[in-house]
Design a protein around this nucleic acid. Sequence first.
DNA 1: TTTTAGCACTACTATCACTCGAGTGCTATT
DNA 2: AATAGCACTCGAGTGATAGTAGTGCTAAAA
Lengths: 329, 329
Amino acid sequence: MISDRQKKLLRLIIEDYIKTARPISSKSLCEILDCSSATIRNEMSFLEDIGLLEKTHISSGRVPSEKGYRYYVDNIMRPKSIDDFDIRELETVFNSKSLVIADAISKSMEIISEMTNYTAIVLGSTSKENKVTKVEVVPIDSQNLVAIVITDKGHVEHKNVKLEEKVAVAEIKQTVNLINKLIVGVPISEVSSLLEYEIKPIIGQYVKQHEVLYNAFYNAFTDFSDNSFKMNGTRNILMQPEFNNTDKIRDIISKFEDKDIIKNIKEEDNGINIYIGSENEFDDDLTIIKTKYKVNGEEGTLALIGPKRMEYDRAIALLNYIKQNIDSN
Amino acid sequence: MISDRQKKLLRLIIEDYIKTARPISSKSLCEILDCSSATIRNEMSFLEDIGLLEKTHISSGRVPSEKGYRYYVDNIMRPKSIDDFDIRELETVFNSKSLVIADAISKSMEIISEMTNYTAIVLGSTSKENKVTKVEVVPIDSQNLVAIVITDKGHVEHKNVKLEEKVAVAEIKQTVNLINKLIVGVPISEVSSLLEYEIKPIIGQYVKQHEVLYNAFYNAFTDFSDNSFKMNGTRNILMQPEFNNTDKIRDIISKFEDKDIIKNIKEEDNGINIYIGSENEFDDDLTIIKTKYKVNGEEGTLALIGPKRMEYDRAIALLNYIKQNIDSN
DNA sequence: TTTTAGCACTACTATCACTCGAGTGCTATT
DNA sequence: AATAGCACTCGAGTGATAGTAGTGCTAAAA
């Protein structure tokens, strides 16, 4: 359905365009393909007919279409392993003995963003099945306290709470003790109902200002941020030559500022998922590469966002490298 | 040295320019000043001679110079109190009983950023004189633990620590107990030397794997982030018409991404400090308005960053309003 | 002495015509 | 099937032109 030469031509065009961001002319490929520009034009014309290439105007060179990138990723690009230069930047991170794995992941994505000029995102979703290991409440004064929840996976969440009226420290301590007895070992997902149906009646019985305290604790213990979120290099991507008009830049910045859009980027399977241009909900001019990871029962997502004109093989190799390191941990 | 009419003219030009971002012509001010355009041109010419106005080209209308803004801020602008519309947006935040003051500050700055389209920054610097109220260490498994430090002002800092080798839980607990006994009540600023000169010898005596544990705890307890940092609406500012070329936008984005530049924005006195254009180190095309606040012995800085063509009176009124609310807290 | 009317002048903006070069598509030939 | 050759197209850049929105200056008026 598509000849070997056409494949090679498409590959050359895409890889050239990825480097230069300029439409590719038939003439420029004569030498490599060892034939005349006219021949190449014929092939290009064919590839355009089946939708893999585009022109920016009628007499311009060719540019890969979205479908072209997709074909390239699916059928032409060969899986590449991470290259020596990239590995050198990253290996120190995972070799560090004292770095907690979550920090190693963040750090390595930071480095990748720097190396590639793409935006790197680490979305760690704390499983709701994590269990409460400890609840700590430290009174600051008669009206302010700090509530801390620690889970069995080492997540810590804290909240400064202001009581609506003054409460004796003894009352607070008593409440905390009651809560602690009942809440340890309970999965996050059940904390809310536990508080409401079991703890509330009990503290109502023993504690004077139970109303005030219950409200404060309910607020502190139920409104968990259920995922962490780190983004690096939003700026880098805007330096790409295709984003050289103010409106486009402003548009992308707006999208990046709306964290929810990004958090909603869910991935499909356990491999590396690639969403080119309109295949993603985020922006037609961008490609998003995502993959899940799982470490100590914690799930998370890694993502790289770049222009459609992305070094797909390299980006994939980098993400794979990180995945491997996470798994071997 | 500068007549009343000239003052009025300067004020009109600046306020008009703040609204429109367009050079102001002599003709457009005839009616308001009740004289001919020629007269106004003469006055404009004078104001230009003394450096308060500029032209974008030889036959263009006038635009305020940096010096002009400075003169306006120092000598012309009348202190304005926050207007009804703005107050309505903000008052709910400070009226909320259950909101901790720090959260109220963040929230109100968020709202201000939204209202004004300027970038709002809250820089809360935890005083190094805050004292450690509690140290909590929760083992996750034999090689990972969570270290938490709580200060007397309610700041919580936590760190996931990976031990370089496995350590018995009993050893960890013993170490924590030792540390806790010695560290509570000590100012943050002294934690580091306390650990090194007093605690290290002691745990060396009692704990087997003291080396590993000491390293882990030293790392966890000394590397405090000494200030919190919240920024809102970096995007808004880029929507201003003066930033309509890609290079300028990219430049500003880069600067905003470098948090250190922003953190280093120190303020001079306790009032409201205004740094117009080149008066600040950040960017010649931007104005930064900053002010300190102090609440419960915690110091912090509020800042608004906007174009030089900023609604100075409004920005100042807004910051003052927040300051008042903080003080009355 | 201050204000103003009038006019010359200037620079920006938009439009148009033109050219050049880098591409293509097509056709006839090898 | 590949190629040489040619006509064609478009974009980018250039220069000329006209219109417009301003100014500065001067001389007259208030």
